Amino acid sequence: MSDITFPDAKEGVINCRSNPMGGVRVKVRLVPDTQIGAVLKLNWQGYTDQAGEQPIFDTETSFKHTITSEDISEGVVITVGDWSKHIKPIKDGSARASYAINGGEVGDALVQVRLLNAAGQSCDEV
Rank of each mutant, 00 (worst) to 15 (best):
M1I: 11
M1W: 13
M1H: 14
I4C: 04
I4R: 02
F6T: 00
F6R: 01
F6M: 05
D8C: 10
D8W: 05
A9S: 09
E11S: 14
V13R: 09
I14T: 02
N15K: 08
N15M: 07
S18M: 03
S18I: 01
S18L: 06
N19P: 06
M21Y: 09
G23N: 06
G23E: 05
V24A: 02
R25W: 08
R25E: 14
V26Q: 05
V28P: 00
V28D: 04
V28K: 05
R29D: 14
V31Y: 11
P32L: 01
D33W: 05
T34H: 05
I36L: 06
I36C: 05
I36T: 15
A38I: 01
L40M: 10
L40R: 02
L40F: 02
K41D: 12
K41Y: 03
K41H: 09
N43G: 13
N43T: 13
Q45T: 14
G46I: 06
Y47S: 09
T48S: 15
D49K: 07
Q50H: 13
G52T: 07
G52H: 06
E53P: 08
I56L: 12
F57V: 13
D58K: 14
E60M: 12
T61K: 08
S62A: 12
T66D: 05
T68S: 14
S69I: 04
E70L: 12
E70V: 09
D71Y: 02
I72R: 02
G75H: 02
V76G: 01
V77E: 15
V77W: 06
V77P: 06
T79W: 06
D82L: 09
D82H: 12
D82N: 15
W83T: 04
H86T: 08
I87W: 03
I90K: 03
D92K: 15
G93L: 05
A95V: 04
A97K: 04
S98Q: 09
A100T: 12
N102W: 00
N102G: 07
N102C: 03
G103I: 04
G103T: 05
G104R: 14
E105Y: 13
D108L: 11
D108W: 11
L110V: 10
L110T: 10
V111I: 14
V111G: 05
Q112D: 14
L115E: 00
L116S: 03
A118R: 13
A118D: 15
Q121A: 09
D124F: 02
E125G: 00
E125S: 06
